[in-house]
Nucleic acid binder design. Structure first.
Lengths: 220, 220
DNA sequence: GCGGGCCTCCCCCATGCGGCGGAGACGGAT
DNA sequence: ATCCGTCTCCGCCGCATGGGGGAGGCCCGC
């Protein structure tokens, strides 16, 4: 580990005490340097533009424009934007997702301890690696809900049946499916009957629901 | 930063070269200690059981059982399990999600540089903070897809219509919905007609699809 | 007070749909 | 050679569904 120029950090939080605390924690590290502070979203944007930090610790709730929009603006307007780590109090906030969408490199809870904070800054500063608080577990849980392990019946569907189910789940009638697949309507009915049997459903609506719940429409 | 006992790390990768490289990188850090290596999934489980590391760097592709299953077993069988960081080559692998589901504390790309690796280990070792590679962007993108901005028609549904749509999307027939809502079947038909009109769909199947695509079934 | 949105319920009608039972053709496995 | 799974198609039947009307009661806002 050779010595390097320190990692330049900007703090954006509307509470002075928080900024002071963060500055105290980060300044204790020789390889970190706090080069600016901002108390509002607009101020954050201008400070970052001036000081060109490597990392921004961005609070979500701030006057004027919030941390999410500030992040968007910073990433959109600067050609070599800093890594933005969004900091907030509540892990179940929808802010997590908004922050991700805005292009934040990381997400941190305020209750993270000092070590986690400084190492988070170091981590984002020089890699494309993102870091996340336990809120990611929520994200992962939701993902697991959206992409569950495929139920056994998925594997039992024949090729044609899968095709039919896919078209059913696009809202097509049997006649439309028949035209699309260039087979007779009776054939489609046979496949539909097989699908209902294998999925354990009684009508096409339930079959489509099963397809969605199984993540069948996400696969491929 | 006071001195602490070193972070104990176990490496699990079927390629000796990778293990050697990882060991070289980690051993250069005074606060990290590689206490074991494993070349297969089963070996990883037993080595972890013996050495009780703080952190496991776990490759996905390994003989016998893969890193995901090994992670599951480790987390399920040990009472104070280590943090498991799953390491792989491809960020678009479905392994990301499998790893999350298995309870991995982190996910790292093999192309991460040495510093990222080291700091990742430090980060997971002492906080509930998860760390992630850019693959999380995919996760976030999928989340955005799974939870899109609600289409305009959602707001136009009346309370009763929302109830009916929700039950429709659970696969109930009109008669069942009527019983469930304690109204007459004709009433349900009216609501269904209104729903079809507002959603711009022609039958209940399409309406249910619209509900799913709109994230209607995820809300609340 | 009066209109409009909402919820409730009614009739008639056409049809898409699912259940039932069948059948022929093909291909791979045994 | 035989059997099984798959894909293709047929007829018939009953019913849930959706379209097109309409109607009365309720409450809220103008």
């Amino acid at each position: 580990m050779t010595t390097r120029p320190p990692i330049r950090v900007v703090l954006a939080d509307d509470e002075r005490m928080v900024r002071t605390a963060l500055r105290a924690i980060l300044s204790a590290e020789p390889d970190l340097e706090v080069v600016g502070e901002a108390a509002t979203g607009t101020e954050a944007v201008s400070v970052v533009r001036e000081r060109r930090p490597d990392v921004v610790l961005m609070d979500v709730r701030m006057p004027e424009i919030d941390g999410i929009r500030a992040t968007e603006q910073i990433l959109a307007t600067l050609d070599e934007p800093p890594r933005v780590v969004v900091v907030t109090t509540f892990e179940h906030d929808s802010y997590v997702y908004d922050a991700l969408r805005a292009g934040a490199a990381g997400f941190l809870l305020k209750r993270a301890d000092a070590d986690a904070l400084v190492q988070a800054v170091r981590l984002v500063s020089h890699s494309d690696t993102l870091l996340f608080p336990s809120a990611v577990r929520t994200l992962a849980a939701e993902h697991a809900r959206a992409y569950p392990a495929p139920p056994p019946w998925v594997a039992r569907l024949t090729g044609r049946e899968s095709d039919v189910l896919r078209l059913m789940a696009q809202g097509l009638t049997n006649a439309e499916i028949a035209r699309r697949m260039e087979v007779g309507p009776a054939t489609v009915k046979s496949h539909v009957a097989a699908i209902l049997a294998k999925t354990g459903t009684r009508d096409r609506t339930q079959a489509v629901i099963a397809a969605y719940e199984a993540g069948f429409m996400n696969a491929r």
